[in-house]
C-alpha cells in the first residue's frame, strides 16, 4: 500500500472535522473492503480516519418499535445480539452469514452500508426493512440512501452514525453465494413491515433494488408460492464468469421464495 497519514479521533465531531478538512481522507472502520484495496494499491487516500475509538458509534439497543445499531457494530456482534435475535431474527441470521469468521469479527454494519457493494448482504436488509440511516447531519430513508454500485446519498465528509430498523412483523433472507468470493450472487430480503411488504434484491444487479411485483404478490398473499411464478427480468442484471444475468434472474425468484419460507 501507499503511505498515508493515520488519525484516530475519539468523537464524531473530531472525525467529521478531519474528513471535512481533507477531501482525500477516508474513514475506516473494519477495513474489510478498504484494506484489500489499499494492499492492491487501488486506492490512495491521503489519510485514514480510524473510527474505532469513537464510543458514540457503538452499541445495539431497542428503542420502542425500533432497533438501533451503531455504525461500529461488528457483524459477529449483530449475529449474536440477544436484542437483534429477539426483534429481527432474520437480521441476526444475515449478519452471521457474511464472509467468514475473520471478516465478521472485523467488518461493521456502518462500513458495509456506506460502501454499498452490490454483492454485500446488509443493504438488502436495510432496504427491505425500510430502515433509516442516521448520519452526523441528518436522517436518510433507505429508499433514498442506496444509489447504485458503491454509491450512496452520503455527502463527502458525512459520517454514518447508526442504522435504525423498524421492527417488522415478519422478515426472511436467502442468498446464493458466489462460490469463489462467497459474496452474494443473488439474494432476497423480504419483510412485512408497517409500511407494507418490501422485497429487496442484492447481488444480482449493479445495486440493491426493490422487486415491486413480488411486493405486490406478497401483500396479497404472504407465501412462497406467491412469488414462485414471478420472473425477474434479466435486463440490466450482472453477468460474469460465475453466472449469466439469466441465471441470476432465475436465482432472484428462488431466493425470494426461500426468504419467504424462512420468514415463516
Amino acid at each position: 500500500m501507499y503511505d498515508f497519514a493515520y488519525h484516530k479521533p475519539t468523537s464524531i465531531a473530531d472525525a467529521v472535522k478531519l474528513l471535512s478538512a481533507d477531501p482525500d481522507a477516508r474513514p475506516i472502520s473494519g477495513g474489510q473492503t478498504l484494506l484489500p484495496a489499499l494492499k492492491h494499491r487501488l486506492n490512495k487516500p491521503s489519510a485514514l480516519i480510524d473510527l474505532s475509538g469513537i464510543a458514540e458509534l457503538r452499541g445495539i439497543r431497542r428503542e420502542g418499535d425500533k432497533l438501533v445499531i451503531g455504525a461500529l457494530a461488528k457483524h459477529e456482534e449483530v449475529a449474536n445480539s440477544a436484542e437483534v435475535k429477539a426483534a429481527i431474527p432474520a437480521l441476526a441470521t444475515l449478519a452471521g452469514t457474511i464472509g467468514d469468521t475473520q471478516v465478521r469479527n472485523r467488518g461493521t454494519i456502518g462500513g458495509s452500508v456506506s460502501n454499498n457493494d452490490p454483492a454485500a448482504d446488509y443493504p438488502a436488509a436495510v432496504l427491505a426493512l425500510d430502515a433509516t440511516i442516521v448520519t452526523d447531519k441528518r436522517r436518510i430513508a433507505a429508499d433514498d440512501f442506496f444509489q447504485g454500485m458503491f454509491t450512496t446519498a452520503l455527502e463527502p465528509g458525512e459520517l454514518l452514525v447508526a442504522v435504525e430498523f423498524p421492527i417488522p412483523e415478519k422478515a426472511g433472507y436467502a442468498k446464493m453465494r458466489n462460490p469463489a468470493s462467497r459474496y452474494v450472487m443473488a439474494g432476497a430480503f423480504v419483510a412485512k413491515t408497517k409500511s407494507g411488504v418490501r422485497v429487496a434484491i442484492n447481488g444480482a444487479g449493479p445495486g440493491v433494488f426493490r422487486q415491486a411485483e413480488m411486493e405486490k404478490a406478497l401483500a396479497a398473499s404472504w407465501s412462497p408460492d406467491a412469488v414462485a411464478g414471478i420472473k425477474q427480468d434479466p435486463e440490466g442484471l450482472n453477468g460474469d464468469i460465475h453466472g449469466s444475468a439469466e441465471y441470476r434472474a432465475h436465482l432472484v425468484t428462488v431466493m425470494a421464495k426461500r426468504a419467504v419460507a424462512a420468514a415463516g
Binding site: P179, A180, S181, Y183, I241, H242
Partner: peptide, 11 residues
Amino acid sequence: LLSGSMADYCL
C-alpha cells in the same frame, strides 16, 4: 486472466 484471484478462482 479473469480468474486471477481467490475472489474469482474457486478453491
